[in-house]
């Protein structure tokens, strides 16, 4: 208990100490997860929308795969990316292992099914006759799709929030493929693991608080976007 209270007090001291190493870790966390989220959003929202709005052969299989992907253990994805990017792996030439690129790849794979799956569910929740209605008002297929996505906005933002939550808090995969290299691939979660292992519980708690605060702020920002859906 003492540890926790002392940790929380010290956590704030550390946060306001403007220590460059700490901000480097925070920045890397945000940028790696942010870029991964952009990729998984750019891939996931169209896929989710397409799967909700169109019928094509193999759609059922795709849906099953997507749902499996949503529940896939991130560390297994990390292992997969590791084996791909390893010196002896098929993509070893890239030299991406233990760089932020590898972490972005892993996080994209982790969050992409979440974004796509939740988007699909959200779009499927929109009135099925809406598309016909929009086409009748003169929408192009693309305009209709965009309008439907906007109608599903709340659900689509939940999809993005879920994707972000999954990767900003993920530790196993980034540890495996990033290697937790100080100043290069060390992010908040791996730093927390490290400080805990070093017995620096105060610092670990501080980092944990920063992580909580960050996800909170990002979620508030996303939800503000969502709020506009009602205006």
């Amino acid at each position: 208990m003492d540890d926790l209270i002392r940790g929380i007090i010290q956590a704030f001291e550390i946060i306001f100490s403007l220590n460059p190493a700490l901000y480097e870790v925070i920045w890397l966390s945000l940028s790696v997860s942010g870029i991964a989220l952009v990729f998984s959003t750019v891939l996931g929202i169209p896929l989710g929308a397409a799967m909700a709005l169109t019928r094509f052969p193999g759609r059922q299989l795709m849906t099953a795969l997507l749902y499996t992907g949503m529940g896939f253990p991130p560390v297994v994805i990390g292992l997969f990316v590791y084996l791909m990017l390893s010196r002896s792996g098929p993509a070893g030439q890239l030299g991406w292992l233990f760089t932020p690129k590898a972490m972005i790849v892993a996080q994209t794979i982790i969050s992409f099914p979440l974004v796509a799956g939740f988007t699909m569910a959200a779009v499927m929740g929109v009135d099925p006759h809406l598309r016909r209605q929009l086409m009748s008002l003169g929408a192009t297929p693309w305009q209709a799709t965009v309008t439907i996505l906007l109608e599903a906005k709340i659900g689509v933002i939940v999809a993005i929030v879920a994707g972000f939550g999954a990767i900003i808090s993920e530790v196993g995969a980034v540890m495996l493929v990033g290697g937790n290299i100080e100043g290069k691939t060390r992010v908040l979660t791996t730093a927390i693991v490290l400080e805990t292992q070093k017995g620096n519980f105060d610092l670990a708690i501080a980092l944990g608080l920063v992580l909580l605060l960050l996800s909170f702020l990002v979620n508030v920002a996303l939800l503000r976007l969502q709020g506009k859906a009602f205006s």
Partner: peptide, 16 residues
């Protein structure tokens, strides 16, 4: 051509 025609449906769907 499509844009010359429009329908008011039996159960119109309005946007949110």
């Amino acid at each position: 051509l499509r844009r010359k025609i429009t329908t008011v449906f039996q159960n119109p769907v309005l946007l949110t």
